[in-house]
Write a protein that binds this DNA or RNA. Structure first.
Lengths: 256, 256
DNA sequence: CGACTTGTTGATGTACATCAAGGTACGTGG
DNA sequence: CCACGTACCTTGATGTACATCAACAAGTCG
């Protein structure tokens, strides 16, 4: 529940040159050309620090900003009128937030900070200019949108066709792969700021039953969550249970 | 089941000038400028007729083509290794097929023709040129990708949080709204080429139970399917059952 | 220290899947 | 015209995977 609507946020001037952005060192992202650096440097309008639990973007509103995650975890979610919440996906460093506000009149989902988050801020009008002045970056935005659609396809497949244990196993493998590639985890483990309640709203399972599933995975020595960390105990077993297609989560990303 | 892998398709030269494309008259699409018409006319490489039940694009392959639906229904779907199939979404006239092949090395879903379908064909390399030469159209492609993501968000919410009756009601309302706006139906009804098996794979329900749900909706005089037609009997009742947000399916579309 | 958030446990019910037939309407070839 | 297959829908019996509700630890955090 309850993202506080009064986020403890803090705005500030850029403190790091984009050329020296630590994310750039990651092998996940493609190299930037000088003109691309120039565009980003020129148009980045600031940084925003958001505390864990706060709302970054609110459903049915239209933020003038577009964000890129520099540090931390966030998640997109939406709800039915009766209150049941669905978590749509988790966003990690390098992910783009708020494309919908740039394309449509309003968002149909909220975005909350899961951990403390540091965001790079852009003005949403600039996305128009992007298409006119820097087609490579415009292409990257489209690439990110297509990739996001692909992730959503996979989630729908998961929730529609996998059973409870398989669903949880799949999400563990998926997020482990993504964090690992960003250098936020190793072969066997990664950080895990996701509570059981989040996971229940992600998988469409109830909280008590999800708890049972998680304990079962631990008992069967497949994976264990403790102390905000996920440990993969038996990767092959987990992959088989989840019917996980390893190749699907491997993609070179073009854009910061 | 079983899309025949040897589709009865027929390739042919364009028979209609894009300027006179009947879809252009639809109030759903924004008007094109002369330069946009020129781009489309120059780059459209042909038309393709595909028979109902045939495969248009195959998972794990990489088609050199990008399609736009001129006439008919198609659907995107993917499957788990164990065989369970998930239908991701239905594609209607004006929808773009195969963006993934243009952005990535291969597709992670197949596309099948649900009815006989008429496609406009583009070469996938041209999408690069689009970003360099016609930024308005490039923006439209991104717009379509963002809209598709939005639709996938809504489906995930549906399958994750709605119960069986509510799921089916939601899909009926969603597809009725989309077809109606394209002029393929009226206030109370629309064409419905979707079998119960398709619907089961869309909702994640079993075929027999889905059948029960559909009969219940008919008995309660909410909606009825017969003879490849959907009839909405009690729209308000259906909207309430589905927790359907009318505004979400209303969007002006930019691109053919 | 109490208040709150997160995880654990158990009792009970139901919404759904699975399996197994059978039924109807259509086509196709003899 | 009949025999046959095939595609789609219908029906019922049985089981189980899950939800719901309720209460209670256990660990933050002010």
């Amino acid at each position: 529940m309850a993202s506080k609507t009064a986020p403890k946020t803090e705005s500030r001037r850029p403190h790091v040159k984009c050329e020296q952005c630590s994310l750039r060192d990651s092998p996940v992202f493609r190299p930037f050309s000088p003109s691309e650096f120039e565009w980003v440097r020129e148009h980045k309008s600031g940084e925003l620090a958001v505390a864990a639990g706060s709302t970054i973007l609110l459903e049915d509103t239209n933020s003038p900003h577009l964000f890129t995650i520099y540090q931390g975890w966030a998640f997109r979610h939406t709800a039915l009128p009766d209150g049941s919440r669905q978590i749509l996906n988790y966003a990690l460093p390098g992910d783009l937030l708020g494309l919908q506000t740039a394309m449509f009149d309003k968002m149909e989902h909220s975005v909350d900070a899961l951990t403390d988050v540091l965001l790079c801020v852009f003005e949403r009008e600039q996305i128009w200019k992007l298409f006119n002045t820097t087609p490579e970056l415009a292409f990257d935005v489209t690439w990110l949108a297509a990739r996001q659609e692909r992730i959503m396809d996979a989630k729908l497949l998961t929730v529609g066709q996998r059973n409870a244990k398989s669903r949880v196993a799949y999400i563990m493998l998926h997020l482990h792969a993504r964090t690992k590639r960003l250098g936020l985890g190793d072969e066997k483990s990664c950080e895990w700021p996701i509570t059981q309640e989040h996971l229940a709203d992600t998988t469409g399972l109830s909280k008590p039953y999800l708890n049972e599933v998680i304990r079962a995975l631990a008992e069967e020595k497949l994976a264990r969550v403790s102390d905000k960390k996920l440990t993969i105990l038996d990767r092959d077993g987990l992959v088989e249970l989840a019917q996980y297609d390893v190749a699907r989560d491997e993609m070179l990303r073009p854009f910061l």
